[in-house]
Amino acid sequence: MTPARLSMAYSPCPNDTFTFHAWAHGLVPGAPEVDVTYADIDVTNGLAERGGLDVLKISYAALPWVLDEYALLPCGGALGRGCGPLVLAREAHTPADLAGRVVAVPSERSTAYLLFRLWAAREIPGGVGEIRVMPFHTIMPAVRDGVVDAGLVIHEARFTYHEFGLVSLADMGEAWEADTGLPIPLGAIIARRSLDLPALAAAARASVEHAWSDPAASRDYVHAHAQEMSPAVQEQHIALYVNAFTRELGDEGYAAVHALLDRAADEGLVPRVSREALAFPGR
């Protein structure tokens, strides 16, 4: 049974505000009203682990720790191609030169960091020296200013890192796609298992479709929450991260999620997750 009003958390990034604008503003007929908390991915991952909210956007990498209480919804999330996290530095050098260095990451439970760990196990003999968790929008300035030696960045950093005088050492998405042939699973939408999951999935799907049918309707909402981003970059961000997988994971999307979590479990980085735990009712 789903109450008439739910608590929900997602990031202030353009892909999330674009995707959920219609639902958050009561434009999806029959959908429960939502009280929205805007927070970076490290915060929403923690909120999910504490079980504090009804519906959340989290990292796919955080799923193994929350699936007892939450179910993965098959829509509303972020997967794609050509949209992987980047490893940035002030100057070009080889990945092996990161050995013993300080690297900033957006969350220890982020998909970006999980992909980085899988990549670094092959490319950085001996491993990095220190991992430092920072809000994602502070990582590029920290790299630029020498606070850290390199940074693992997500979201719109793909479009703006040149403005900070930085260079890309590696693209985690390119490495993943070359290795698996699958899209990159980044952000997942989860909901309490005690709720009406099909109804919530339908609300998320309808919100995506509303956003696509009337992109201008969400423009002010997206702009109000975007963190120091030009309208042109906001549009690039949405075009890259809101795609067919946002509307429906489908077989390829589920295959990507299974591959990520299976590989991470094989390396001892996350608990093993069964197919049943990831399955959506009726699928």
Rank of each mutant, 00 (worst) to 15 (best):
H223Q: 15
G282A: 05
Q227D: 10
Y221E: 12
T94I: 00
R81A: 05
S59F: 02
A203Y: 08
H137W: 14
T17A: 07
M229W: 02
V34L: 04
G80Q: 09
D35K: 01
A188R: 04
A211M: 02
I154A: 08
R109D: 05
F116L: 11
A112I: 01
D145G: 01
E123S: 11
R132P: 03
T37R: 13
E252G: 06
R275V: 09
E228P: 00
V233T: 14
A178Y: 05
D145S: 10
V36K: 07
L182F: 06
P141Y: 10
P64Q: 03
E163Y: 00
A112N: 06
V34R: 07
P64W: 13
T111M: 02
F245L: 04
L79Y: 14
E267W: 04
G151H: 06
A31C: 06
P198W: 15
H21R: 07
P14V: 10
I41F: 09
D97Y: 09
G187V: 13
A264Q: 12
L195W: 14
A121D: 11
E69F: 00
S11V: 01
R219I: 00
I238M: 07
L278I: 10
A112C: 05
A170W: 09
Y254N: 07
S274P: 06
T138E: 15
N45S: 06
L166Y: 05
S213R: 13
V105A: 15
R247N: 02
T160R: 15
P215G: 12
L6M: 02
V148N: 08
A9Q: 04
S194G: 02
A191L: 03
L118R: 07
L169F: 12
A199M: 10
V233P: 01
G30V: 06
P85Q: 11
